[in-house]
């Protein structure tokens, strides 16, 4: 009797939402659990690192790795799982693009550590103690992983076979991916497992978007009463939909919030943030630099807005400082 295919889930710099997404499969999860043999799932099961290390290379059919890569421990696991697995799926926005953790690429590692351990209001650390990567305590050496200077997407560390986009990926696309894997019906290596067409395709507000958009100001969601029917971009909100892959059925716009771009760009775009800028600012009204600047002031944090999930994949990769 052939063994059930072995499946591993691992989380790097992650919020746990991607694990939740797997659980969100609800009853469908039973079909998955029946068909596969889960050999690693830190959030739910008690397999140890040594268990995984002991396995032969390539013995795991699929490893779903979520979270960005920020520490040496995450790198180690990613590299190890790459050896142990035949197929590695980069799972979720953090693994695909760097995700929210990648916003740290705007700051020097030292500045972050200083803020967290010394300057943050509420921190009481007069001796300025910092955790160390290695310390000897009662004769034993205890180590902590090294925090890297840069937050990386998974494919900037290991070779990735497929990408499941989203923050988190929706149960629907997870199920579709799992089924494709089990049936052996996967597309070309490197494919993002979601339609290669932007979000407006799926969005119910599409028809209300005027064909002659000429924006005079940008607003943030808390500044206006958001009309639940009208196109969000037309209302002056920064909706990344046009620059973002579909597949999520436009959940955020359906929830009366603009798309923030978590599915990443289409395959034809190198840099999602830059392309969105190229598009949305072509459609603003003013012609004089001073008037243009007033409109741009409505977006006080452009990097955080246009690269909310994708800073690791920005062509410039991180802030130079």
């Amino acid at each position: 009797m052939p063994d059930k295919p072995k499946v591993a889930f691992y989380w790097c710099a992650s919020c746990g939402g991607c694990e939740e997404a797997v659980v969100d499969l609800a009853e469908d999860i039973l079909k998955v659990v029946e068909a596969v043999d889960i050999v690693l799932w830190p959030v739910a099961m008690d397999f140890k690192k040594t268990d995984v290390e002991a396995r032969p290379d390539g013995s795991i059919a699929v490893a779903f790795i979520n979270g960005a890569v920020r520490t040496s421990e995450q790198e180690e696991w990613a590299r190890m799982l790459r050896r142990k697995a035949q197929v590695v799926v980069s799972f979720g926005a953090c693994a695909n693009l760097g995700g929210i953790p990648a916003l740290a690429n705007q700051f020097k590692k030292e500045d972050i550590l200083k803020f967290v351990y010394e300057d943050c209001p509420g921190v009481d650390n007069p001796s300025r103690t910092r955790p160390q990567t290695s310390t000897v305590d009662e004769g034993r050496t205890v180590t902590l992983p090294e925090i890297r200077n840069m937050v990386r997407s998974l494919d900037q560390v290991i070779d990735v076979d497929y990408y499941l986009p989203g923050c988190p990926p929706t149960p629907k696309i997870i199920m579709a991916a799992v089924q494709a894997i089990l049936a052996g019906k996967l597309p070309a290596k490197g494919t993002v497992l979601s339609p290669d067409i932007a979000l407006c395709e799926e969005c119910k507000r599409k028809d209300s978007k005027p064909a002659d958009l000429s924006l005079t100001e940008f607003k943030r969601p808390h500044q206006i009463q958001i009309d639940p029917e009208k196109c969000l971009l037309a209302q002056g909100l920064v909706c990344m939909g046009p620059a973002t892959r579909s597949g999520c059925e436009a959940l955020c716009p359906s929830g009366n919030m603009p798309c923030t771009g978590c599915f990443g760009p289409s395959s034809r775009v190198k840099d999602q943030g830059a392309k969105f800028v190229s598009s949305v600012f072509s459609n603003i009204a003013p012609k004089e630099a001073a008037d243009i600047d007033k409109v741009l002031d409505g977006i006080p944090d452009p990097i955080g807005t246009f690269y909310r999930y994708g800073l690791s994949k920005c062509i410039l990769r991180r802030k130079i400082n």
């Binding site: 705007q106 943030g273 830059a274 800028v277 190229s278 600012f281 072509s282 603003i284 003013p286 012609k287 630099a289 243009i292 600047d293 741009l296 977006i299 452009p302 990097i303 246009f306 920005c314 410039l316 991180r318 802030k319 130079i320 400082n321």
Partner: peptide
């Protein structure tokens, strides 16, 4: 020059995009 674009208004689109790009480049330490 603004107003003289061979294609009528292409350079206005350039100006608008690039004013934002300038801010972003600055934020990225360039």
């Amino acid at each position: 020059h603004p107003g003289d674009c061979h294609y009528a208004e292409g350079n206005y689109k350039t100006l608008r995009r690039m004013r934002m790009l300038e801010r972003m480049l600055k934020d990225m330490g360039i």
